[in-house]
Amino acid sequence: MKPAPFSYIRVATVEEAANALSEYTDAKLLAGGQSLIPLMNYRLSKPTVLIDLCGIEAFASVSLKDDVFTIRAGITHQSLHEHPLVRAYAPVLAECAGEVGHWAIRNRGTLGGSLAHADPASELPAAMVALDARFVLTSVRGERTVTARDFYLGLFTTDLAEDEILTRIHFFASSANRIHFAEIARRPGDFALSGAFVRVEESATEITWFGVSDMPYHLTLDALPVEEKARQALFTSLASTLEPLDQTVYRRKLAAVVAERAYLKGRRVQA
């Protein structure tokens, strides 16, 4: 199981990466590669040019200013999981980053890579949808900003143009408040069978599911019923509209369960 040949380009800046990407039409970005390289080893992906973003300077920084988090896309999952600012002001993001794969995978896999790969069972794209994050996409044509909710278009499909690189992520620290997360996987570190981010406010509720559809599934509701049975019935009825890629009945059931568990976690934390 060995990858097909390719040319390798190491870039030192985002500009270089954007230039390379516009120059080579059959290029792929290597942003850690913990999903890409297995596909290449299986020869399911055979890019002729690989542009390695891992050498870009300061591509893993995190800053928080005036309630705005700015995270550069090269941060590894493990760094995100451990970052003091993230832990303090967006704990749900730190928590779910720690659920991505296993330790060795998290040490190389990056946030940008995961967000652009758009695996429907992955935690981080859903987290960004839940946070209502903005992605900055950079190309030789310039920069544009797109919301996470508009970025995801379908199974492994995003709004990222062929010549664009996801370079920065912004979200409001305050938006991370009151979002809680639960997931169910067959074994720890496996892709989730179902997961949910639930944000509970006085008058409104947001749910972002993953693993139960071709992409993160976000919806906004009125306040949730406080009574357990009614609330669970609501989750069940909402989940019954999901279209999982397989194990439909089972995953819909789990979707209702993880929504409730994320909700209860929130209530415990906020109490």
Partner: peptide
Amino acid sequence: GKPERSCLVFAIQ
């Protein structure tokens, strides 16, 4: 110093 998969890293990296 950090554990990584050597099957998911190209030597050149």
